[in-house]
Write a protein that binds this DNA or RNA. Sequence first.
DNA 1: TCATTAAATTGTT
DNA 2: AACAATTTAATGA
Length: 238
Amino acid sequence: MPLETALHERRRPLTEGELLAIPWMRLLTQDERERAATDLKIAEADPGETLCRTGRPVTYWFGVIDGLLKMSTDNAQGQTITYTGIPPGGWFGEGTALKREAYRYNIQALRKSRVAGLHVDTFHWLLDHSIAFNRFVMNQLNERLAQFIAAREIDRMNNPDVRVARSLAALFNPVLYPGVGEVLRITQQELAYLVGLSRQRVNEALNTLQAQGSIAVEYGGLRVLDLGALRTPSPMRQ
DNA sequence: TCATTAAATTGTT
DNA sequence: AACAATTTAATGA
């Protein structure tokens, strides 16, 4: 079932804790927060499920409560290009929501995820009423621009260890993904899909990074020990 | 709550 | 790609 449908069907309100975990919620006044909270809807997405597709009209501004999503497009040759992963705390689609255009990318769940949707009309209402919300969106756009510029650099690197490091640094971005925290819940298989390497190679890279002390590999997740080292990895031998 | 079993994830070739 | 080893989740008394 498409998420858009699922969102309409499940109108259950969010718990207090879930509301506070949403990064922009605490920036709003009581009135604004109540209005946003009433409109907000959550849905579960199963692995592989598509949440929104290129060309479909924008009805919601999406945020990840829990889980992991993948942003991608299919080019003319029919191959899929993955742009980025979206971990908990990440909100996306504000660019297209602003212009009320159609989605320019596909969003798929890499694993079972809980996703929140704010209706575009409410999104615009918040833009019209809250300066703090405007600041949040502006900051969000700016931060993502920086990330996509960094992504171009990552693409030109041939060293897999560095690629994995940089991709991880992006996922641990505290501004874009405040829900991640110290530990990123991601399997090595999921990371392999995002980075575009084999699981074996990702496994090898993770162990190298662990040996360097920038991360700790855990079962079903990764702990960041030195975000700076991930962003600018020291040159490696060979 | 604990022990057993199934499933998921990781490490290695 | 396949396999073994390890960790977690699920089940049921």
